[in-house]
């Protein structure tokens, strides 16, 4: 299992891996917002956390369809399905590797993009923390979509559409926790803890659902 984790992380940073593409897309989305909205610094810092979160959500959707598809194309998925390891555990490891390769770079890039949006230190810290906790949930949810669409050619857009409704609560609680950190009356902990709960919930349900879909995708 460690071998699978290492292999997938290696693949995501080598040529053709999705790690850099996700970060570049994230930067593109967030960087054009100030040009579109105009030089109103107060407005930018007010919408900052939401924009950073939306950017992160869209870029994490971008790489999802490749999670199982590359393995299917070269035949590795067949061999993975045949092994004695519980499939849900294998999928969980693949999700973790996918998050390390695609999700974590987004979290690391987010403070820089926070500066673009004229956010103060507290807001940047809160956004980064909520992204750190929330993006794994996006990966776990996305694994189900990726597994369902694994046999479809050009299933990328379909995966995004399948996954988006389930990803919306993550966005809502991520953004509201980020805002709660800077706006005084709202408490930070309740939305943040709900975000943690969503992540843990999907950490269990996502791999189980994806494993079920992969088993039945047989062809």
């Amino acid at each position: 299992m460690i071998a699978l984790l290492l292999r997938d992380v290696k693949l995501s940073v080598r040529a053709g891996g999705g790690a850099l593409i996700g970060v570049l897309f994230f930067m593109t989305v967030v960087a054009v917002i100030p040009f579109g909205v105009g030089p109103d610094l107060n407005l930018l810092s007010r919408i900052g956390p939401a924009i950073v979160w939306i950017g992160a959500l869209l870029s994490s959707l971008l790489g999802l369809d490749r999670m199982f598809q590359t393995d299917r194309e070269d035949g590795s998925l067949d061999l993975i399905l045949m092994q004695e390891h519980p499939l849900a555990l294998t999928v969980l490891v693949k999700c973790l590797a996918h998050w390390l390769g695609n999700g974590l770079p987004l979290v690391i890039a987010s403070p820089l993009l926070g500066l673009f949006m004229n956010m103060d230190e507290v807001a940047i810290g809160a956004t980064m923390l909520t992204l750190l906790v929330g993006t794994p949930a996006l990966t776990f949810i996305g694994a189900v979509g990726a597994a369902v669409a694994v046999a479809l050619p050009r299933g990328g857009l379909l995966v995004s559409i399948l996954v988006l409704p389930l990803a919306v609560p993550v966005l809502i609680f991520g953004v509201s926790a980020s805002y709660a950190a800077v706006q005084d009356p709202a408490p930070f902990m309740p939305p943040f803890l709900i975000l943690v709960a969503i992540t843990m919930f999907f950490a269990v349900l996502g791999p189980l659902g994806a494993a079920l879909a992969l088993r039945n995708a047989g062809d």
Partner: peptide, 25 residues
């Protein structure tokens, strides 16, 4: 199972590929 497709990653070296399968199998 050795199918039509080789189940090896073009981006990784042969040794990395074989080491992965050895430890995963």
């Amino acid at each position: 199972y050795l199918g039509h497709r080789n189940a090896m990653k073009a981006e990784l070296s042969v040794r990395e590929n074989l080491e992965f399968w050895q430890s995963f199998f």
